[in-house]
Simulated scan of single mutants.
Amino acid sequence: MTTKTLTAPARAATPSPPTRRVKRSRSPYPHWFYLVPAVVYLALFLVPTLLSFYFAFTRWDLFTSEWVGLDNFRTFFDQQEFSIGLKNTVVYALITCTLKVVLGLAVAMMLTSTILARGYLRSVIFFPTLVSTIGIGLAFTVLLNPEKGLVNRVLGQVGVDGPAWLVDPGWALVSVALVDVWKGVGLATVIYIAGLVSIPAEYKEAARVDGASAWHTFRHVTLPLLRPATSTVILLSFIGGLRSFDLIWAMTKGGPGFTSDVISSVIYKQYQAGYFGLSAAGNVVLFLVVTALAVPLSWFLNRGEVES
Rank of each mutant, 00 (worst) to 15 (best):
residue 2 T to D: 07
residue 2 T to S: 07
residue 4 K to N: 13
residue 5 T to C: 00
residue 8 A to N: 09
residue 8 A to L: 11
residue 9 P to L: 15
residue 11 R to D: 14
residue 13 A to W: 10
residue 14 T to F: 05
residue 14 T to P: 01
residue 16 S to E: 15
residue 22 V to F: 13
residue 24 R to I: 05
residue 30 P to F: 03
residue 31 H to V: 14
residue 36 V to W: 13
residue 43 A to E: 02
residue 43 A to T: 05
residue 46 L to P: 01
residue 48 P to M: 10
residue 52 S to N: 15
residue 52 S to F: 07
residue 53 F to Q: 08
residue 56 A to Y: 01
residue 58 T to H: 15
residue 59 R to A: 11
residue 60 W to H: 07
residue 61 D to I: 08
residue 65 S to T: 06
residue 67 W to V: 15
residue 69 G to E: 09
residue 74 R to P: 04
residue 75 T to Q: 13
residue 76 F to Y: 14
residue 77 F to R: 02
residue 79 Q to L: 06
residue 81 E to H: 01
residue 81 E to F: 00
residue 82 F to Q: 07
residue 83 S to C: 09
residue 85 G to F: 04
residue 87 K to Q: 07
residue 89 T to C: 04
residue 90 V to H: 05
residue 91 V to R: 04
residue 94 L to Q: 02
residue 95 I to Y: 00
residue 99 L to M: 09
residue 100 K to C: 07
residue 104 G to K: 03
residue 109 M to G: 04
residue 110 M to C: 11
residue 111 L to D: 12
residue 114 T to M: 10
residue 115 I to L: 14
residue 118 R to D: 11
residue 118 R to T: 14
residue 124 V to I: 14
residue 126 F to K: 01
residue 130 L to C: 13
residue 134 I to G: 09
residue 135 G to A: 15
residue 135 G to I: 12
residue 136 I to A: 10
residue 139 A to L: 13
residue 139 A to M: 14
residue 141 T to S: 12
residue 145 N to S: 08
residue 146 P to S: 08
residue 149 G to V: 00
residue 151 V to I: 13
residue 152 N to G: 15
residue 152 N to W: 05
residue 153 R to K: 10
residue 154 V to H: 03
residue 161 D to S: 14
residue 162 G to S: 10
residue 162 G to E: 08
residue 164 A to L: 09
residue 169 P to Q: 06
residue 170 G to I: 11
residue 175 S to G: 06
residue 175 S to R: 03
residue 179 V to T: 13
residue 180 D to L: 07
residue 183 K to A: 13
residue 188 A to T: 02
residue 191 I to Q: 02
residue 192 Y to T: 04
residue 195 G to N: 02
residue 195 G to S: 02
residue 199 I to E: 04
residue 200 P to K: 10
residue 202 E to A: 11
residue 202 E to Q: 09
residue 211 G to L: 13
residue 212 A to I: 07
residue 212 A to N: 08
residue 212 A to F: 10
residue 213 S to A: 10
residue 214 A to G: 08
residue 218 F to S: 07
residue 222 T to F: 07
residue 225 L to R: 11
residue 230 T to M: 02
residue 235 L to T: 12
residue 235 L to E: 04
residue 241 G to D: 04
residue 246 D to G: 09
residue 247 L to F: 10
residue 247 L to Y: 06
residue 248 I to H: 01
residue 253 K to P: 04
residue 254 G to P: 05
residue 254 G to C: 11
residue 256 P to W: 01
residue 258 F to E: 15
residue 266 V to G: 01
residue 266 V to R: 00
residue 269 K to H: 11
residue 270 Q to C: 09
residue 270 Q to T: 06
residue 270 Q to N: 14
residue 275 Y to I: 04
residue 279 S to F: 09
residue 279 S to Y: 08
residue 282 G to P: 02
residue 283 N to P: 11
residue 284 V to H: 00
residue 285 V to N: 04
residue 286 L to G: 05
residue 292 A to N: 02
residue 293 L to I: 04
residue 294 A to W: 07
residue 296 P to D: 06
residue 296 P to K: 05
residue 301 L to D: 01
residue 306 V to K: 13
